[in-house]
């Protein structure tokens, strides 16, 4: 665990059309393309960033959201350090499906301790006027389902996107930190300053 490289694999999951690719592109290239194609297959982009003194390369994986492509999507879940569960606030169904996405991820990524795995939830498209999912609803779901951090984002208007990705990194570093010290606690202190991982093996 302690020998882990500074490459973090983060995977974006969520229904088709919630804005996974747009979020990735906004974060990595700071661009928003209204003409962006829907993703076929799997893509990824790298981004180097510094969080709390740690320099990490985030490898963001973006997948096709339709159920049909599950068998070709799921092999890429392996080795993920963090999962960004994404829905769109103007699409209640995509919110309802968060649970399925989480399940699918845990199952195929072979997460050993799902309760401790860093998930971050993104409610995208807050720029859209007609909301179907309220902030409170989304927050409540996150609270009930493992106290996941929740961010309301807009890839279009560049709202909260970087913050959300950075939180993902913090979450991963916090988990690593804890595992390194073998503290079997069920609570994760989000604001704990992650210490540099020490090599012990």
């Amino acid at each position: 665990m302690a020998t882990k490289s500074s490459l973090l694999k983060v995977i974006l999951l969520g229904d088709g059309g919630v804005g996974k690719s747009s979020l990735m592109n906004r974060y990595v290239t700071n661009k928003f393309d209204t003409h962006l194609f829907h993703t076929i297959g799997v893509e990824f982009l790298n981004k180097e960033l510094e969080v709390d003194g740690h320099i990490v390369t985030m490898q963001i994986w973006d997948t096709a959201g339709q159920e049909r492509f599950r068998s070709l999507r799921t092999p890429f879940y392996r080795g993920s350090d963090c999962c960004l569960l994404t829905f769109s606030v103007d699409d209640n169904q995509s919110f309802q499906n968060l649970n399925n996405w989480k399940k699918e991820f845990i199952y195929y990524a072979d997460v050993k301790e799902p309760e401790n795995f860093p998930f971050v939830v993104l409610g995208n498209k807050v720029d859209v006027a007609e909301r179907q999912v309220s902030k409170e609803e989304a927050q409540a779901w996150c609270k009930e389902n493992g106290n996941h951090p929740y961010f309301e984002t807009s890839a279009k208007d560049a709202i909260n996107v970087a913050v959300a990705f950075e939180e993902a990194v913090r979450r991963v570093l916090a988990t690593e930190d804890r595992t390194d010290h073998l503290i079997p606690t069920d609570t994760v202190n989000l604001h704990k300053k992650p210490k540099p991982s020490s090599s012990c093996c």
Binding site: K4, S5, K9, P75, F76, R78, G79, Y107, D110, K112
Partner: peptide, 25 residues
């Protein structure tokens, strides 16, 4: 780990390698 179907919990007690590569799958 919960498997998506039929209430099956699948045990996994090997230590997971953290290699980022595809061979994990």
């Amino acid at each position: 780990n919960e498997s998506p179907e039929k209430d099956v919990l699948v045990a996994n007690n090997n230590s997971k390698g953290l290699s980022q590569s595809f061979e994990n799958l």
